[in-house]
């Protein structure tokens, strides 16, 4: 595990001058992931904010080989690159070790890209897929995705007079991916950089597909102050809205347990996308959201309990 002094001594892979919004969570996450990898790397990127804002021709913010193909195929694309790499390595035409990382947003991962990702994982390519999950299609102007939480306002699930935002619960992508029985899957938050760093290091150590789901705020879509990006992600972890855990070789471990689980209001209140929940008409939904968070958190702890002592066997 690297400390900040060491991370700061490594070359920056995502350079400034990109056109991501001020206070964007995606670039913080990507920097943390890439600084955690102290090896040559090749990246693939699904269509999305991260892709468009970092590569506006003729400018690019990427200091490492980077490719974008389309929206739904970052995993399939990197699987092609990785196959060519293995091919050339076997033939002795390349000798260095290269780490392959694919980035996609929640739209490109939970929704349109889930098939491509599932296929690439099942085929066993050696790559790390990082989903930067900001819980909606932000690049196209804040539309609801399979990751948008219950009750959140987006442009296609607006809070109106009769419908209070998105009325469906988000899917649990990390568990869906874990069901592929890949060597490593984890949830991270850039607010907890040390946890993130450790998980990335673990992920890339495996000779196979690995997956990291990272909560990433979008201050335009979540409607919070731009300086609050890290704070809000921290609150997501402390309310157990976004638990930090890993599933390593089948064994689930929660990597951070808040000393005191904060009430979900602390997560909802600073975000304009939940503003309608703090009105008399819709405030009962907060209880429902709390119940759901509690259930998921308890279930996760129970699951962890199943594996107690497993590692020592």
């Amino acid at each position: 595990m690297a400390n900040l002094k060491e991370l700061a001594s490594r070359p920056e892979r995502l350079i400034g001058g990109h056109r991501l919004c001020a206070g964007c969570g995606a670039s913080i996450l990507v920097r943390q992931v890439l600084l955690s990898i102290d090896k040559p790397m090749v990246l693939s990127n699904a269509t999305g904010c991260l892709e468009v804002a970092t590569t506006i021709f003729p400018y690019t913010s990427w200091a490492v080989p980077w490719m974008h193909n389309a929206f739904e195929n970052a995993a399939a694309t990197i699987s092609g690159v990785e196959t060519a790499y293995r091919h050339f390595k076997r033939q002795g035409k390349i000798d260095k070790d290269i780490v392959f990382v694919a980035f996609g947003g929640d739209g490109g991962t939970y929704d349109i890209g889930i098939q491509s990702l599932s296929g690439a994982i099942e085929r066993g390519h050696r790559f790390l897929y990082v989903c930067y999950d900001n819980q909606a299609y932000m690049n196209t102007g804040i539309q609801r995705s399979g990751s948008t939480p219950y009750g959140a306002h987006t442009m296609t699930s607006p809070s109106g007079k009769v419908i209070p935002g998105k009325m469906q619960k988000r899917k649990d992508l990390t568990m869906i991916i874990a069901a592929h029985h890949l060597p490593y899957a984890a949830q991270v938050s850039p607010s907890h950089w040390r946890d993130l760093n450790k998980k990335v290091e673990k992920a890339i150590s495996y000779d196979g597909p690995t997956f990291i789901n990272a909560l990433s705020s979008c201050n335009r879509g979540w409607r919070h102050k731009m300086e609050d990006t890290i704070e809000i992600l921290r609150v997501a972890v402390d309310t157990c809205v976004w638990p930090l855990y890993e599933i390593e070789e089948g064994i689930l471990r929660i990597t951070y347990k808040p000393r005191e689980k904060k009430p979900v209001e602390e997560w909802l209140k600073p975000q304009g996308r939940y503003k309608h929940l703090f009105t008399p008409k819709y405030e009962h939904l907060i209880g429902e959201i709390q119940k759901d968070v509690d259930q998921r958190w308890e279930r996760l702890q129970k699951l962890e309990g199943c594996f107690v002592g497993e590692k020592d066997k």
């Binding site: 090749v42 693939s44 490719m67 193909n69 389309a70 195929n73 399939a76 694309t77 990197i78 699987s79 092609g80 690159v81 990785e82 196959t83 060519a84 790499y85 091919h87 050339f88 098939q115 491509s116 296929g119 690439a120």
Partner: peptide
């Protein structure tokens, strides 16, 4: 994904 992987592999000089 077939064509996507082809694009990936071709970009890697294959």
């Amino acid at each position: 994904s077939a064509m996507s992987a082809c694009v990936g592999a071709a970009s890697a000089g294959a």
